[in-house]
Write a protein that binds this DNA or RNA. Structure first.
Lengths: 352, 352
DNA sequence: ATCGTCTATGCAATCGTTTGCATAGACCGT
DNA sequence: ACGGTCTATGCAAACGATTGCATAGACGAT
């Protein structure tokens, strides 16, 4: 038979089995199979052990190893909503980087309930995860203290905390909104409003701040009614807050939304009022989520690289886990990019 | 101070600590804290142990427990692409059900490389997952044999295998496409084509089959050129195969796509040819993914309940893990639902 | 030849739970 | 009062890997 025999199923092949076959002690096998400790063992023995392990189809039991080393090679990831297409590429990027260093990721869906978050963190800590990635933090979030007390390394992604006490990887939200405002100004808009995100999230607060500052930089001063805040980042909330905004400031010629879904909700509100986008009013989104290039009208938006954010956050967490000096203090701000499509156009001339 | 003291961090509070405080043996604590074995212990002792555990903030160490019981309370989930909005609700549903029975899920992104799948399964088996959920299987997939050999319980979701050797939860793909075909026939279409998915996937094959059978049921016989197969489920592939289809069968008045993304690719191909949808040609999708109600034109599609599928698959896996009789033989077909929007309309009258 | 140094390997304890078996009382019937 | 049955708890051995310490040679220097 030319076909190579498949190694036995890994049912119960332990270090001792390999040790026996290679005629050495189990501890020697343990060392020989660990790249970091291999140098302690004579080359001849290492190869003998390696072939024995290969022949038996040995796979180290990470559970036993974890018990002894008190490290699980597991990291927990908390997202507000797995189904949100912004988070899936983050998760995917994270998983890729972490897997390359032997870590598996447990992803937990927090939902909107803040208490659920503590519960999930506790559960993950009970599983002795080596680190956590949080895409869920609010600006003032007791979870962080909790993690710090338990000495679990944490990286934030997409959203940051106000105390700035933990490393994070986020998109430059102020700058992103600034790009949208500049674009609108450059094509002639003067009355620009903001459909803001929840202010308890850094994205909501930073984008609002970015809006105000960018407006000032263009010599514009937004009035109070020119900003309306959505209760959450979804279409319904966008539609509701959009209606508030349109009522409060009927003369706006453009609205910068804090998020694509809010923008889509707003566009629906506009349709219900028979106001055309962009003919009557221009709209921008934020995130460039999939398919917003095919909605009607195709959305001008700010592209963030969620996958790149995930990759970067993974690298940062690895640095933390390796105890690299300075990792604690790293903060990564990713550069966003404006994508101009058809939901923005020059404002209509006012009838004289 | 009225505030209740927070229990110490769970750093190193073991069974023995609790045992010592409750003045019993560790094994008694172990039993008292396990609902299934609590009845072995006197009620008074149980409560004493419980309060001791609470006061100390004890959390059982699942790693140590896993080592002893050879069960990890982990399940692995393989998806072809986390970022695909069809799979996130599946994952979310699965996670919810499994978490309620104390299982955590490790989600792995397989991507398109078939070899990567075996590798990931091996990795998960090395971590001693108690079960696997595969959303990735091809119709003939060696992975299943591999899992069966290793005696790891498996549930398929969204896609099934041809041998039908493993329980699955899928949408009734044939029926789903049948709904689309019936709808098109009912509004007068006679020349209907199919933009098929990859035939190595059950969804591709079943929907194609469903198309052919539904056509026959309406007295129509699709010609060879009326079906084109996309290489994968994404917009580019949809656009490419759409172009092939439009060239081969220029007189089609409607096209049933196997998937929303294929439909969107097709619509782009139509736009490039200045053919209007639905004025010149009607298009239907499949899955009702988020935002297809807002694209131009809003897509008529077949809604599947991916979250419900995830929930159901989770329940099925739990049954398997509990060794419930008959669980091995369960197959769940979920009922799809047609959602009519604006991408379908009666065919234009042919010029006489 | 002797001693010291170094290196490769073995020894055994340990990580924290679970669980089969042993046992000490309690309780019951006669 | 005695033997038998039960029940609640303790005992100790796993589970499979890692790792500080011990040690047996090898080797070199004097």
């Amino acid at each position: 038979m030319s076909r190579k025999a498949t190694p036995m199923a890994d049912q119960s092949i332990t270090l001792h089995c390999v040790a026996e076959r290679a005629r050495v002690h189990a501890s020697t096998v343990s060392r020989a199979l660990d790249p970091a400790r291999r140098h302690l063992i004579a080359d001849a023995v290492v190869t003998r052990v390696e072939t024995a392990a290969r022949e038996l189809g040995y796979r180290r039991n990470p559970i036993a190893a974890s018990l002894r080393t008190r490290r699980s090679k597991l990291v927990g990831v908390l997202v507000p909503d797995i189904a949100n297409p912004v988070f899936s590429p983050i998760i995917s990027g994270l998983g890729e980087v972490l897997a390359s260093s032997g870590y598996s990721t447990i992803v937990a869906d927090v939902g909107s309930d803040a208490r659920r978050q503590k519960q999930l963190v506790d559960e993950l800590m009970a599983r002795r995860v080596d680190g956590l990635v949080l895409a869920t933090v609010r600006r003032h979030d007791p979870t962080l203290r909790h993690c710090r007390d338990a000495k679990v390394p944490v990286v934030l992604v997409n959203r940051r905390d106000d105390q700035n006490c933990v490393p994070w990887v986020i998109s430059d939200d102020q700058r992103g909104i600034g790009l949208a405002v500049s674009h609108l100004c450059s094509i002639g808009h003067l009355r620009i409003g903001h459909l803001a995100g929840p202010r308890h999230l850094s994205t909501g607060a930073q984008r609002r701040q970015g809006f105000i500052e960018a407006m000032r930089a263009h010599g514009l001063q937004p009035a109070a009614g020119d900003i309306a805040e959505a209760a959450s980042y979804d279409r319904q909330a966008g539609e509701a807050a959009g209606n508030v905004l349109l009522d409060a400031a009927p003369d706006l010629t453009a609205i910068v939304a804090a998020n694509d879904l809010l923008a889509l909700g707003l566009i629906r509100a506009l349709k219900a009022r028979n106001r055309a986008c962009p003919a009557h009013i221009s709209v921008t989104g934020h995130n460039d989520m999939p398919l917003v290039d095919m909605v009607e009208p195709p959305l001008t938006t700010v592209r963030i690289g969620p996958r790149a954010m995930g990759l970067e956050a993974g690298r940062l967490l690895l640095a933390l886990l390796r105890g690299e000096p300075g990792a604690e203090d790293r903060r990564v701000l990713m550069e966003p990019e404006l994508v101009v499509r058809a939901s923005t156009a020059a404002p209509a001339r006012r009838p004289p």
